[in-house]
């Protein structure tokens, strides 16, 4: 770990001020990713601004019936919020499937969106890594890549996005509220993450000095059901090998509206509009679920050790669709 300057911000404006025109500044919230990576010398910020005191800890209903979640709401608090549990079940389930209680008590909503990959090679500076240093190479492509992505990959990076929460939020069509040097802007989560392409170091649309302040969830039509399923080697405390978030509204046995996102398989939380299109207006049937899963994984590009993820992700999505559409 390198020496760094440390500041504590009490307000959003002072936080923004503290990083203004600093190219190597980072905000720290729960610290569950950043501090680890600093210890590994993967992140070497010159300045760290602590935003744990920012007044962004509220979970509030919005006038349109949606939910506004402060960026500093802890994962545990969000998971156990009554509204989230009842109306946005998929989000509560996703949060509780992630990490451990201790980590969830620290991890923040904004920080979770910015979690960085568990790629072994990214986390070890003895290796080159295009995500750390564009153009230096990707040892994962020809290395051990069982945990790596099969969707959204490029010849420069196959690192998996690790978040569970973001997958659920993707299916909930969350909107990220960002405060930056030039004021506030809102970005739908679906547009927030970037594919690695030839610039895997750029993971999202945040610009220098931007701060996530809130995430909003649009209202859900009454009767909407949702579910998150996570598959991994052990029963708890492990990142997903494959996960699926489904938010669906049924009309009888017909799927009126559905939103689908996959985790553990993409270079970003993976929204599958292809799968949604296949299902909307169709019968909730095993055949249609499987067809949707085939569509979602149509462009999958497996590598040496992760070919199983293609079938695993299909089964994961099929089962999640089945669970969410089961009739009482």
């Amino acid at each position: 770990m390198e020496a760094f300057q440390f500041n504590q911000a009490k307000t959003v404006s002072s936080a923004l001020e503290a990083v203004r025109s600093q190219t190597e500044a980072k905000f720290v919230a729960g610290g569950t990713t950043l501090v680890d990576l600093m210890k590994l010398n993967v992140e070497i910020p010159k300045k760290v601004v602590d935003i744990n005191s920012l007044p962004l800890t509220q979970i509030e209903s919005t006038p349109d019936g949606g939910l506004k979640i402060g960026a500093m709401v802890r994962n545990s608090d969000l998971a156990h919020d009554e509204t989230v549990q009842q109306r946005y079940t998929v989000l509560s389930e996703a949060l509780l499937s992630g990490a451990s209680p201790q980590l969830r008590n620290m991890a923040s909503t904004g920080g979770n969106l910015l979690q960085r990959t568990r790629c072994y090679y990214f986390r070890d500076t003895a290796y080159p890594c295009n995500k750390r240093e564009p153009g230096s190479g990707c040892p994962a492509i020809d290395g051990f890549n069982r945990i790596h992505a099969i969707l959204g990959t490029s010849e420069h990076c196959i690192a998996t996005h690790p978040s569970d929460m973001a997958v659920a939020m993707m299916a909930l069509e969350a909107v990220v509220h960002i405060q930056g040097a030039h004021g506030e802007r809102n970005v739908p989560l679906n547009d927030f993450y970037l594919l690695p392409g030839s610039t895997p170091n750029r993971e999202n649309v945040l610009a220098l000095g931007d701060l996530i302040t809130y995430v909003t969830l649009p209202p859900l039509t009454n009767g909407t059901r949702s579910h998150y399923l996570k598959l991994r080697d052990r029963a708890s405390y492990e990142f997903a090998l494959s996960s699926a978030a489904v938010v669906a509204l049924l009309s009888g046995h017909r799927i009126q509206r559905v939103r689908i996102a996959l985790g553990g398989v993409g270079t970003k939380p993976w929204r599958s509009m292809e799968a949604e299109q296949i299902l909307e207006g169709r019968e909730a049937s095993e055949n249609n679920f499987r067809a949707a899963a085939e569509a979602a994984l149509k462009d999958a590009k497996p590598r040496h050790d992760n070919a199983f993820k293609v079938e695993l992700a299909k089964r994961c999505l099929t089962r999640t669709l089945k669970n969410v559409t089961q009739f009482a």
């Binding site: 072994y120 052990r234 492990e238």
Partner: peptide
């Protein structure tokens, strides 16, 4: 390469 407790998996209570 899995030389840590996140990547070298051992059983948890669950």
């Amino acid at each position: 390469i899995n030389n840590n407790f996140a990547d070298y998996i051992v059983p948890v209570n669950a």
